[in-house]
Write a protein that binds this DNA or RNA. Structure first.
Length: 584
DNA sequence: CAGCCTTTCTG
DNA sequence: AGAAAGGCT
């Protein structure tokens, strides 16, 4: 049983329904090593940092239970009672992408088992050395199997530990260390569930309250360029194109692209999270929420928000010979390694020899790092000011009773209207668009509320199910030609600069369509890059309920799922798991 | 062997 | 950026 609001509610309702039918229901934990309420610090409080959490997990007085054996026999009921027509595993619009994904990843527990064995006997031993490499040869590739429950995390844990014991006895320190590191990433997965359990809205709201005041840049053009892998930073672009084409990204590259998203582009992190959700094979609400919160600096032990990672340096770190970049960005294939991660510095002659014309063939950097740093500093100080102001208002409110209208951003706003307002700056006034910021983190897409919408607006646009995984790329063959035409169209003439920001190919992009028109038809989606755009234009959420002044978001942590549901009755409303089930 | 410098890793 | 670890004198 998974410990997050959605599956918690789902499981709970399932149990209720079955019990009402007179069926005895037992649930078992198969998704976690330990139940979240078992792992607490010396005061009995939940951990708020990963390292101590994981240490405690590793030093628990009892091992995680071994995975249960499969049942000897399953007595099937009367199958004719099952309305089989209702079980739709693949609808028409998904067929293309499914066929594609099946090539890279074979579902089913037997294949999961094979993948595990292969990893244990192969890459695991060298994991500590190879995990820096951008290509996936060194990773376990188990996450989709884990996500879909085809593989028990306990089984993984026990088998890796046995390997570790063997290697430890052999004195193979590198391999032993590999096990520690790999288990650590299993631990991160565990921790993501743990956090979601203790803070059920961690996929929606930053855990550190001050982050709610960060003025995100609401710029859908940036968002689009990031998705298309046209930021002008080769490592970022290569990653985004691999993600698009395969639904897979190496862990390190996920950090690179999301960090770029949050710190250089300063887009609202939940947009990025939504896109990951739409594209990643192993998309996982808890893990991705943890990952994005980590990158955004909204965890107590996350990385600092003001530290911008330099894609150029990271490029030489993770992809020292530029092979990864060349594989995913054919335009740059002929560029020597010396310049592969910073083509903008390359001499004209080198670029010419490589057939590259920056700004047409391959974009110039969308934002220069110095400019990004400066803007980030501004944004941060604005964030702290707002935070302080909010706190002051809170205190006043305490003293004088009520009347703190400024404390929380507007609770409800007309979605369409708000959207229009937000688009104005980016659309018309080309000289100020970069400053269009919104502090309301609520202006972001959310899985749950979009499901809610789907529930209420019924089939109007759900037919095209923009919230499901249907929009995983249709034709994943990477087609540089299409892309190149696009590039040329979008980058005519020299790129003007405003505030140190290259303006090319940002404002010449066609404006995103309105929401009603976003879902692409199948043919549209398969025909070009832009065809798919609509599918990932976010659905806007209503603001999260009440604001809190504590450092930590004030989700009540609770031990039993029962009382969680008592306190969050709205969960029933918010989450329509039948819509979600196909993507979970 | 202390003290200092460099390198490496931080999800 | 900052800590930790390792290497050098």
């Amino acid at each position: 049983m998974k410990q997050n609001p959605i599956s918690l509610v789902r499981d709970h309702r399932l149990k209720e329904m079955l019990t009402a039918e007179g069926i005895v229901v037992n649930s078992f934990n198969a998704d976690l090593l330990y139940e979240p309420w078992e792992v607490v610090d010396d005061e009995g409080q939940p951990f708020t940092m990963f390292a101590p959490f994981w240490n405690r997990c590793l030093s628990m007085p009892y091992d995680p239970p071994a995975p249960l054996l499969p049942p000897k026999k399953i007595n099937s009921g009367n199958l004719s009672m099952c309305p089989s027509d209702d079980l739709i595993f693949e609808d028409e619009s998904e067929r293309g992408s499914n066929a594609l994904l099946a090539r890279a990843w074979t579902p089913g527990w037997q294949n999961a088992d094979k993948a595990l064995t292969a990893f244990l006997n192969g890459p695991l031993a060298d994991y500590s050395v190879n995990r820096k490499k951008a290509d996936s040869a060194s990773t376990s590739l188990l996450s989709p199997h884990l996500h879909f429950g085809e593989l028990s995390v306990r089984k993984v844990f026990h088998l890796v530990r046995m390997k570790q014991l063997v290697w430890s006895n052999e004195g193979n320190h590198a391999a032993e260390e590999s096990c520690t590191l790999f288990l650590r990433s299993i631990g991160l997965r565990e921790y993501s569930r743990y956090l979601s359990f203790n803070h059920p809205s961690s996929h929606e709201r930053p855990l550190l309250a001050h982050l709610r005041f960060f003025p995100w840049v609401v710029n859908e053009c940036y968002f689009k360029i990031w998705r298309q892998g046209r930021t002008g930073y080769p490592l970022v672009d290569a990653g985004m194109r691999e993600l698009w084409a395969t639904g897979w990204l190496h862990d390190r590259i996920r950090v690179v692209v999301s960090s770029f998203f949050v710190k250089v582009l300063q887009l609202p992190w939940r947009w990025g999270m939504k896109y990951f959700w739409d594209t990643l094979l192993d998309a996982d609400l808890e893990s991705d929420a943890l990952g994005w919160q980590y990158i955004t600096g909204s965890l107590p032990d996350g990385r600092e928000l003001d530290r911008i990672d330099n894609p150029q340096f990271e490029g030489y770190k993770f992809d020292p010979h530029g092979e990864y970049v060349r594989r995913w960005i054919p335009e740059l294939a002929r560029l020597p390694t010396e310049w592969i991660h910073h083509p903008w510095d390359a001499p004209v002659s080198v670029l010419q020899a490589a057939g590259i014309e920056l700004g047409s063939n391959y974009p110039l950097p969308i934002v220069e790092l110095d400019a990004a740093k400066a803007r980030l500093q501004e944004a941060l100080s604005e964030m702290w000011q707002l935070e302080a102001a909010s706190r002051a208002t809170m205190n006043n409110g305490m003293d004088e009773g009520l009347g703190d209208s400024s404390e929380v951003p507007p609770i409800e706003f007309p979605q369409e209207l708000q959207m229009e307002i937000d688009r104005q700056p980016a659309q018309a006034t080309a000289n100020v668009p970069m400053t269009a910021r919104r502090r309301e983190d609520q202006m972001v897409p959310t899985m749950t509320s979009s499901l809610n919408r789907a529930e209420t607006e019924v089939s109007a646009d759900l037919g095209n199910s923009e919230d499901t995984r249907a929009q995983v790329p249709f034709h994943a063959h990477f087609e540089p030609r299409v892309e190149r035409e696009d590039a040329i169209q979008n980058a005519e003439g020299p790129a003007p600069r405003i505030n140190g920001v290259h303006q090319h190919n940002i404002f010449q992009q066609p404006q995103p369509r309105r929401r009603e028109a976003v879902a692409p038809s199948v043919s549209e989606a398969s025909s070009s890059w832009t065809g798919r755009e609509g599918a990932v234009v976010p659905v806007w959420s209503l603001p999260a309920a009440s604001g809190h002044s504590e450092t930590f978001a004030a989700d009540e942590a609770d031990v039993s799922s029962r009382s969680y549901l008592d306190r969050h009755p709205q969960s029933h409303r918010l989450m329509n798991w039948s819509q979600l089930s196909q993507s979970l």
